[in-house]
Design a protein around this nucleic acid. Structure first.
Lengths: 130, 130
DNA sequence: AAGTTAATGTTATAATATAACACTATGTAA
DNA sequence: TTACATAGTGTTATATTATAACATTAACTT
């Protein structure tokens, strides 16, 4: 039986790399780092990334084309994400604020539509760079 | 004297195209469409796009690598943007909600940091696609 | 064991974006 | 009005990000 959260070999290798990285990683930097483990082609990386995003184990920082491990241990599915991005040093942090997530999950547009899935990126200067 | 909001030739051509498009346009689709007007190279497009984004005349939909004219006529600088994206038909709409923008502009992270610049993308199904 | 689905490996290529350099137009200030 | 500075342009080449297509292998289901 295949448990929900079992990772396949490639997925595990790539998740481990992202998870232990202090900063978001880009696909080709991941590729370079896992070539010694037998992952040789971009597609192998992108396929694993797709699945990991789908499972919510990692998130994509869209404005940076980079991937970060989910900091929010309870997060099972990638639906609702928020990040702060320092425009000086590029430090990126996942924000977990229940008031923010509640506000956004309950937000209705002018047609009354709700959206349970969203991605929010805040830009500014981090403490160090101010 | 160069007025704040005067556009240069290339900027004007590219802004006009995006502005009259019912949907966000991608850089190379823009390139294809303006070749008859003498804009021949990707860089010419990207440079104009960068400036237009900087001026707040257009916004980039990060998750789609596409550009849309700002719907919010008062918007002068691209700082705070929010969009709804239909995952079925890819219809993309700029959200202008003062309560949302106030909430986000006043949001403080756990270090007390505020971010006046952000980009928010909501995903779901539009009315037609539900 | 047979069928089904998901993941892998591989080659090639598409799509998105920037570097570097020469040149032109425009604005500023002596 | 000349010199200087700054912003925009044109061009070639190349870097970066991502997917198509197809053959194969592994894992789950009955």
């Amino acid at each position: 039986m295949h448990k929900e959260n079992d990772l396949t070999k490639n997925q595990q290798i790539i998740f481990d790399l992202i998870d232990k990285s202090p900063e978001p990683l880009k696909a080709y930097s991941i590729l370079f780092n896992v070539q010694k483990k037998g992952i040789k082609a971009p597609l192998q990386v992108y396929r694993a990334l797709d699945k990991l995003v789908e499972m919510g184990k990692i998130h994509k920082i869209e404005s940076r084309n980079a991937f970060i491990a989910c900091q929010n241990s309870s997060c099972q599915v990638s639906k609702a994400t928020a990040f702060s991005i320092c425009e000086m040093c590029e430090k990126i942090t996942e924000i977990s604020s229940s008031s923010l997530s509640k506000y956004l999950a309950n937000f209705k547009d002018k047609d009354g539509m709700k959206y349970s899935k969203y991605n929010l990126e805040f830009f500014g200067l981090c403490k160090k760079c101010r």
